[in-house]
């Protein structure tokens, strides 16, 4: 802990702010001792002493999901049989007056660092699902360093075409604005602007609000697709899983996050199929 931190903690206690005990040492690259600006030193009465940086936490060889496609960026790719591609459909259920060719569909779901909103929240994983050569293809981008974000955004942008139709669950209010903010902060044009977007939360609500206890994705997948997840990492734990890894912890939880995201994408595809082609039987093959 630095002496400035001690001083500030003291001042905050004097100001009546309840200060939590210092958290365990964060693994950080060795700090050079930074001299405090003179006025600060005078004001805070900091006595000079050099501090030794805490030793770096030893990290085991990391076993990350997928493969590295750029520094700090992993890609996991898989194709599965279920959910099957919907036929050509009319999107009136989503209040869009258009016939949609399933080849245009881009399903997406992000995992983020939290729900606080604003410019301080970022996506650490972008999962994309589409139908490719007759099968459901999942591609998940995961950043393992903060610096990998721009590569992730560029890769995601490269998967989008002007006629792409986005499909999400609450993405219009949450995922899309968040990604737009991230593109902006990285000084890139947002590829999401102008694309058609089917946010399945709204059609689900219109049909089943009042009939189910809520319209969360977990409820919808259980009710419509009879999907029951086993040993699933709850979405609310995803931010902590990634932060723990970032701070030098184990990569094991990241696999569980990827698994959770993957299931989200499949359920998204299944629910879309329900609306696009309601008469089809959609029991998952596994």
């Amino acid at each position: 802990m630095s002496t400035l931190a001690d001083k500030l903690r003291g001042l905050r206690r004097q100001a009546g702010v309840s200060v939590p005990a210092a958290s365990e040492p964060v693994s950080a690259p060795a700090r050079r001792s930074e001299p405090l600006p003179d006025n600060l030193r005078a004001l805070l009465g900091v006595r000079r002493h050099t501090r030794v940086a805490p030793p770096k936490v030893a990290t085991a060889a990391v076993d990350l999901p997928g493969g590295t496609i750029a520094p700090g960026l992993q890609l996991c790719e898989a194709t599965v049989a279920w959910p099957p591609a919907p036929p050509l459909f009319h999107a009136q259920f989503a209040k869009l007056d258009a016939w949609i060719d399933p080849e245009r569909l881009v399903l997406f779901d992000t995992e983020t660092t939290g729900l606080a909103g604003g410019t301080g929240t970022r996506a650490f994983m972008i999962g994309v699902g589409d139908w490719h050569e007759g099968r459901f293809r999942e591609r998940q981008l995961l950043i393992t360093t903060l610096a990998g974000e721009s590569a992730m955004l560029d890769c995601f942008a490269s998967w989008l075409k002007p006629d792409s139709v986005l499909v999400s669950y609450n993405g219009k209010s949450y995922d899309a604005p968040l990604l737009k903010t991230r593109f902006r902060l990285q000084r890139r044009a947002s590829p999401l602007d102008g694309l058609m977007h089917i946010d399945l939360l709204h059609p689900v609500r219109r049909r089943w609000r009042g009939a189910w206890e809520n319209c969360r994705l977990a409820t919808a997948e259980r009710q419509l697709l009879q999907v029951v997840r086993e040993d699933d990492l709850p979405g609310s734990e995803a931010p902590a899983a990634w932060l723990g890894f970032l701070r030098g912890g184990s990569a094991a939880p990241l696999h569980r996050v990827a698994h959770h995201n993957s299931q989200d994408l499949r359920s998204l595809g299944g629910i879309l199929h329900q609306f696009a082609s309601p008469q089809d039987d959609l029991h998952p093959a596994d």
Partner: peptide, 16 residues
């Protein structure tokens, strides 16, 4: 920088 380090110790910032 000294303030950012304090905030990193606090856990709200990550230095990379």
């Amino acid at each position: 920088t000294p303030w950012l380090q304090v905030l990193a110790e606090e856990g709200v910032l990550h230095q990379e």
